[in-house]
Design a protein around this nucleic acid. Structure first.
Length: 942
DNA sequence: CCTGGGTGGG
């Protein structure tokens, strides 16, 4: 090699390898005899799979510098090689291939396909280089330390950004060695290079060696924190990007001393603490990106007029406070993304002044006030103000002339008034989302929609009325049309959607619509292939014909008047990709046979008139609700195999007979099992109580007998246990103590004996305890005396044989019955949430007795409170402490052997609606009359 | 394909 008067590198185009010819580019001084050159490099260049070689050279008589990518000086020395993005693959021969390029000043091999070879060490000869770019070129492994010999380097880019490219590795402390002689360096880009250094090292390595550094990019370098304030000694720093490093650090205040900073990007850096707001006021700052630093606090400062900021991305941080009016001074701002922060207060109307803004996203904050006018911001393509608290109405002027607007989401606010028709005529608008507001009135048609680009129209959950406008059915690009939960009325012919051939989601549920889905038209219409169809509460009289729907995965036909059989084709809808089927609240009586329920994950057919055998659910199901039908046979013995992945399984309110099959215990993912209100007999399977997943077990209102097995799992997760209204005997088992999360325990109306179930004393979440109508006996030694049941709100131990005196301590500890208890203000009801991703929950119910009437509470409001100790053998005086239960709604101590005076403190029970102390031996007192009068006045408001 | 991009959620 060394005797050759020229030097060269090889470049092979992968594209041409694939097409059968290899291209070899030969660089250097121009050649007379190309063939002799070919012979030379065959011996010295490493490349594989060479089939044929084509030389691409350039004519010596021409100035070789004219060839793209190569520059020579006046002596013919190559001084610049720019071969980026040329699909170059193959190898560069180690050590020697770059020999002879000693005049090279600029080398750019970025974006090529050197097949995972090392950066050639020969590069160390290129000591005249001022510019070296090897980024995303396909090199891997170590950065050769010899690079540090290129002391003239001004710009160095070794980044590997793209997935699939193996990163260069620059192991600490080599960063220090690499840069220590590069005093001229102004640009350093090592994105994706595995530096793996702690903050104290990488910060000081850079700040002590690179006094001229202007651009620094170290994203995704496995850097650690903390950020060292020495970085702010780099006075020329203009561009600083550190995204995606787990820095876990605060940003030093001294960063505000970087007076030339134009870009600061530190997204996904686990930043913490308070962001120094002086950084916002750096006069040169153009781009500030802090996306995804959930622990980073900060506020927006006042922005001076003529600010230089162009891009502000603070989404998914903990920035808070209000948006300053002076945000309107950011006349250069083109991109602002504040989604998922904690901003509060009024959305400033000065937003109107942002004439350069292209992208604006303030969603998922708590902003209030009116929508600003956007008609001055003609460049807008994206507006998202969803999930705030905006009020007021929209006018056509708000969006006038926004000819580039593609996306607008104002959903989940409190906007009202009518929807300006002009919105539908915005020429570029593709997605319009206005759901979950209070828009009202009819939706009027704009002057023209013929060129509409709308593909998504979501108006669901508003107060819209009138007929569904015809022009919706003429928006030919429509893909998603969501109109559920409004007051649209009239009759809709399903044929109307035949123009909408791109439609994939259609939701009309819960309006005042009558949908005529029968295919009665004389001209058979081509239905678009829909994946999601929701027609709940649409007065459907029969099943729409969906037999040709091959993409259907979600179908909700609940709350209609569909009678008769469930057609067996429905199980094949969507060619077996149907995963969610809701037919609840209809008048269905049978399943058309033969049927084969396949692949569903949600099957809800509750509240129909289905009878006969239980349909075997598909083993794919996670939610199965067969409740409130007329199923009246046995539960199939192998049911457990069909619900083996189910989370929710309800058979309640049917007429099922026979025993609970042991196989149900194979359902090892079950969170809710409700078999209540049937005619099931036999005993409770031991294995059922040893479940470690169940949160709700309701076996109430059956004919179960035997004892409650002493089999509750040590990792019992039950929140609700309802065994009431059976014929259970024996005692409450001690292992119930394992169920420390219990909120509702009801074993009323059985034949259970023994003393009060003190094993529940460590179930600190207990809210409802019903022992009514059993054979419990003994004294009631208040288990809550040490505040163990702070949330107790309903306790019903009536019709047992409890005796002894009432413990004053009880009434002191049940803070769930006190008015100042925080939980009282939640105005919520007891429910068991499950399947977090969905909106599924199990609704707890309980039966209470008020003034002799049994009342089923289908929702247990957390404000409802009741004590029923009636029909026992309690004796002694009523403790004064009863007056502490200041939110008590019902108190029944009747039919006991209580003596003495009625405590004066009962007068403090200002919420009391029902008080029964009758059938005791209470002596009348002067208080009594007063108390009754007080309560009377309270209730009837005289 | 790519040299800093830009979704869509609930």
């Amino acid at each position: 090699m060394s005797n050759l008067s020229f030097s060269w590198i090889f470049v092979i185009s992968l594209f041409q390898i694939l097409s059968g010819t290899n291209t070899v580019l030969v660089f250097g001084q121009c050649l007379d005899d190309q063939r002799s050159l070919l012979n030379q490099f065959k011996n010295s260049i490493i490349f594989d799979k060479t089939i044929s070689v084509k030389l691409v050279t350039w004519n010596q008589s021409e100035n070789c510098c004219s060839w793209k990518g190569i520059a020579c000086d006046s002596s013919g020395h190559v001084i610049s090689l720019e071969l980026d993005n040329e699909s170059i693959s193959g190898g560069i021969e180690n050590s020697t291939s770059l020999l002879g390029f000693q005049y090279l000043e600029k080398l750019n091999l970025a974006y090529n396909r050197f097949n995972n070879i090392q950066i050639p060490k020969g590069i160390y000869n290129l000591t005249n280089l001022t510019y070296l770019n090897l980024s995303n070129a396909g090199f891997l492994g170590q950065i050769p330390p010899e690079i540090s010999r290129m002391t003239r380097l001004v710009s160095l880019d070794l980044s590997t950004l793209f997935p699939g490219m193996q990163p260069l590795k620059l192991e600490n402390p080599n960063l220090k060695k690499l840069v220590q002689n590069l005093k001229e360096l102004r640009e350093l880009d090592l994105d994706g290079v595995n530096i793996s250094a702690p903050g104290s090292e990488w910060c000081q390595a850079l700040s002590s060696s690179l006094p001229n550094l202007s651009n620094l990019s170290l994203s995704n370098c496995l850097l650690s924190g903390p950020l060292d304030s020495s970085l702010s000694q780099l006075h020329n720093l203009s561009f600083l990007r550190l995204d995606t490093n787990n820095l876990s650090t605060t940003i030093p205040d001294s960063f505000a001393n970087l007076l030339k900073l134009t870009t600061l990007s530190m997204s996904s850096c686990s930043l913490q603490g308070l962001f120094p707001d002086k950084i916002f006021q750096l006069p040169t700052l153009q781009n500030l990106e802090l996306y995804n630093n959930k622990l980073l606090n900060g506020n927006l400062p006042q922005f001076p007029r003529g600010g230089s900021l162009r891009k502000i991305i603070l989404s998914h941080t903990n920035f808070s406070g209000s948006l300053p009016d002076s945000i309107g001074n950011l006349g250069m701002l083109s991109w602002i993304d504040l989604t998922n922060c904690n901003f509060t207060g009024l959305l400033p109307s000065t937003i109107t002044n942002l004439t350069e803004v292209v992208y604006l996203d303030f969603s998922w904050n708590k902003l209030t006030g009116f929508l600003p006018l956007f008609n001055m911001s003609k460049k807008l393509t994206h507006i998202d103000l969803s999930r705030n608290g905006l009020i007021g109405s929209l006018s056509s002027m708000h969006f006038e002339g926004l000819n580039d607007l593609v996306f607008m989401d104002l959903g989940y606010n409190s906007l009202n008034g009518s929807i300006p028709p002009a919105l539908f005529a915005l020429p570029s608008l593709q997605q319009l989302k206005l759901s979950n507001n209070q828009f009202s009135g009819q939706v009027n048609e704009p002057s023209s929609t013929s060129s509409s680009q709308l593909d998504t129209l979501d108006l669901s959950s508003n107060l819209l009325e009138g007929h569904i406008p015809k022009f919706f059915f003429e928006l030919r690009k429509l893909n998603v049309l969501l109109l559920s939960f409004n007051f649209f009325n009239g009759t809709v012919q399903m044929e109307n959607i035949h123009n909408l051939q791109n439609l994939t989601s259609l939701e009309f549920s819960h309006n005042r619509l009558s949908i005529n889905a029968s295919n009665s038209s004389s001209s058979p219409y081509q239905f678009p292939q829909i994946t999601r169809l929701s027609l709940a509460s649409c007065n459907l009289q029969s099943f729409p014909d969906l037999r040709n729907q091959s993409k259907m995965s979600f179908l909700d036909l609940s709350n209609n008047q569909i009678k008769g059989e469930i057609p067996n084709w429905i199980w094949e809808a969507g060619n077996g990709i149907l995963s969610h089927l809701n037919l609840s609240y209809n008048f269905l009586q049978d399943l058309q046979k033969p049927y084969n329920i396949s692949n569903l994950s949600v099957l809800d057919i509750h509240s129909n008139q289905l009878q006969g055998d239980l349909p075997i659910p598909p083993s794919s199901a996670i939610y199965i609700d067969y409740s409130s039908n007329n199923f009246n046979h046995y539960i199939p013995a192998h049911i457990g195999n069909s619900v083996s992945f189910a989370s929710f399984f309800s058979l309640s309110n049917n007429s099922l007979m026979g025993a609970i099959p042991e196989s149900i215990c194979n359902a090892s993912y079950l969170l809710v099992l409700d078999l209540s209100n049937n005619s099931l007999s036999g005993t409770i399977p031991n294995c059922l109580l040893s479940s470690q997943t169940l949160g709700v077990l309701n076996l109430g209102r059956n004919n179960l007998s035997g004892t409650i097995p002493d089999a509750f799992s040590p990792s019992c997760g039950l929140r609700t246990l309802d065994l009431s209204r059976n014929s259970l005997t024996g005692k409450i088992p001690g292992s119930l103590a394992n169920c420390k999360l219990l909120e509702v325990v009801s074993v009323g109306n059985n034949k259970i004996e023994g003393i009060f179930p003190y094993m529940l004393k460590n179930s600190f979440s207990l809210r409802v305890l019903v022992l009514r109508s059993n054979r419990f006996h003994g004294e009631l030694q208040c288990p809550g005396a040490n505040h163990s049941w702070p949330n107790l709100q309903i306790i019903d131990i009536a019709f047992n044989n409890f005796s002894g005196s009432l413990s004053p301590g009880c009434f002191l500890s049940w803070r769930g019955m006190e008015l100042d208890n925080d939980s009282q203000f939640e105005h919520n009801h007891l429910k068991f949430n499950f399947l977090n991703l969905n909106n599924f929950y199990y609704q707890d119910t309980v039966t209470v007795t008020i003034k002799g009437l049994e009342l089923e509470l289908v929702k247990i409001l957390t404000v409802f409170t009741s004590i029923d100790f009636s029909s026992n053998n309690f004796e002694g005086q009523i403790p004064e402490t009863v007056g502490n239960l200041s939110s008590l709604y019902i108190l029944n101590l009747s039919h006991n052997a209580l003596v003495g005076k009625i405590p004066e403190s009962i007068g403090k029970l200002t919420q009391l609606e029902s008080l029964d102390l009758s059938k005791n031996q209470l002596t009348n007192s002067t208080h009594l009359l007063y108390i009754y009068i007080y309560i009377y006045i309270y209730i009837y408001g005289v």
